[in-house]
Design a protein around this nucleic acid. Structure first.
Length: 494
DNA sequence: TGAACGAGCCC
DNA sequence: GTACGCGCTCGTTCA
């Protein structure tokens, strides 16, 4: 057998399991009073949204079709009413092809109050039932009289050798939707007198491809802090000057083009996503009132173009993005593209591959999985190695700070205020320097981003920290001041 | 009662 | 020649 998991990888995995057991044992403190209030108020909002749904003029069609079986939470029923009774043309079908898709994306660009009320209620129900009620079900009282959840971290359920988390899943708490994020993350609070801390591996998903591919362009992007791949791609895709790229447009390109394309997407999916994305956020050019949509019209893009087996018609947005794809893999990241071909060919020849961390894989995978899983797996292994070191070192030095969670590329802690600088220095040393001894194959630097809440803060309250004059302070002091008042440094208030 | 499915949240 | 990777949890539907 050519590919065999190394004894070192086995040992690493077992030690990681022990460290995660310690994380599970610590648990995350829950604000029980806030949680109960949030469930009550969210329930009220759900009732209001469902009342609006029931009194909508189109709801009589729903009644007529489903009668006593009417369920205002049913996506099946929503699809029937909208795409049959209202005669709205559907853009896509479900995976099985059984019916029209009723996912939120299928209604983009439509202004149907019935749908708006349904989706408002659905989002609120998600927040309440999957998150708030999930936390409530799992929380337990400790001897200190306070309430905690103890999630399970699993190392045996992910084919890429990442971790997963269940009961409840700490790894998918809302972050993008501001209201949902606030509602849910305020449940997770610090132990009395502690701070919520977060240690992120910055850009790890574009750094780990470097030791596999040695792509010089990618390596230059992650080694030079003045370079910005997402901004560059926004400039190219939207034909702008760098200073016209807003943060929101950069984020759109980052999520819906760069990452999607790295993971194996293509213009057939990314072109429509960008086309609709500029309208969803009503994006404008930086320092201007002009919308990105108007800009696209001005430079001649007035049609998305069709996505089918044929090449999209010249002059359409789809044809333009197709050209971007060709440049992306054919020129900009051509070394990465060649690695993908070589790596997949070797997998087919050998019946498997071995990750940089020594994990052998023999599973039947498609090309995307073969090329993505060694990157995602190894990115997580860097996190797990660091987490294990940190857990063991905090114990060794009898420190009071505790690791309480992990989200693939970040570590969450309850940090004792007196230990704030020490924990951040220790973590930075482990995550950026000591890791190089364990991972000598790293050919680009790894970076650690430190975040903290005020003392007694919640997960909602964490903000970026920066080291100045030997100690850590808010990276954006004005923002911190506005939200929390004076920076409380390492003052011990408990 | 349980499984399949569709949906939506995370990295 | 190909068409976004990996999870967990929920409600609906149906056997």
């Amino acid at each position: 057998m050519k590919h065999v998991t190394t004894p070192a990888a086995m040992k690493f995995w077992m030690e990681g399991a022990l460290a995660l057991a310690d994380v599970e044992h610590q648990g995350v403190r829950i604000d029980k009073t806030y949680l109960e209030g949030a469930i009550t108020s969210t329930t009220k909002e759900i009732n209001d949204a469902e009342a609006a749904l029931r009194s909508d003029k189109d709801f009589k069609l729903w009644r007529r079709r489903f009668g006593e079986k009417t369920k205002p939470g049913s996506y099946d029923q929503l699809a029937a009413v909208v795409f049959r009774d209202l005669g709205v043309p559907s853009k896509k079908r479900t995976a099985s092809g059984d019916r029209e898709s009723a996912a939120a994306a299928a209604f983009e660009g439509l202004d149907i109050p019935l749908v708006k009320h349904f989706l408002t209620a659905a989002k609120l129900k998600k927040a309440r039932d999957a998150y708030l009620v999930g936390i409530q079900r799992e929380m337990v009282q400790h001897d200190d009289g306070l309430w905690y959840v103890h999630c399970s971290y699993n190392l045996n359920s992910v084919i890429t050798f990442r971790s997963s988390c269940s009961n409840t899943n700490y790894q998918n708490n809302p972050k993008r939707n501001p209201k949902m994020m606030e509602t849910v993350r305020k449940c997770y609070i610090s132990r009395p007198g502690y701070r919520q801390g977060e240690l992120d591996y910055g850009q790890i998903e574009v750094r780990i491809p470097c030791p596999y591919t040695f792509d010089p362009v990618l390596m230059a992007y992650v080694c030079d802090p003045t370079k910005d791949m997402h901004r560059d791609m926004a400039v190219q895709i939207f034909k702008l000057k760098p200073n016209q790229v807003s943060k929101a447009l950069r984020n759109l390109v980052k999520a819906d083009y760069v990452f999607a394309t790295f993971y194996g997407s293509y213009y057939g999916l990314t072109a429509p996503a960008l086309w609709e994305g500029v309208d969803n956020g009503n994006l404008t050019l930086e320092g201007s009132e002009k919308t990105v949509r108007q800009h696209l019209t001005d430079i001649g893009f007035t049609e998305l173009g069709t996505i089918d087996d044929e090449k999209p018609e010249a002059g359409t947005w789809a044809a333009h993005v197709r050209g971007i794809d060709e440049d992306f893999w054919g020129k900009r990241f051509k070394v990465y593209a060649q690695w993908k071909r070589d790596w997949y060919e070797a997998y087919c020849r050998d019946g498997g591959f071995t990750m940089l961390t020594g994990f052998a894989v023999h599973a039947p995978l498609d090309k995307k999985q073969v090329c993505n899983s060694p990157v995602q797996g190894v990115a997580f292994h860097c996190l797990l190695w660091s987490l294990t070191k940190l857990v063991n070192r905090l114990r060794k030095y009898k420190m009071q700070s505790k690791v309480i969670g992990e989200v693939h590329d970040s570590i969450n802690l309850d940090i004792h205020p007196a230990e704030l600088d020490d924990v951040f220095d220790m973590a930075t040393s482990i995550m950026t320097e000591e890791i190089k001894v364990w991972a000598p194959w790293l050919n680009v630097p790894l970076v650690c981003e430190c975040e903290s809440s005020p003392t007694d803060g919640s997960w909602f309250d964490v903000m970026g920290m920066a080291k100045r004059d030997g100690g850590y302070v808010p990276a954006d002091p004005a923002k911190w001041q506005k939200r929390f008042g004076a920076w409380d440094g390492q003052l011990v208030t408990a």
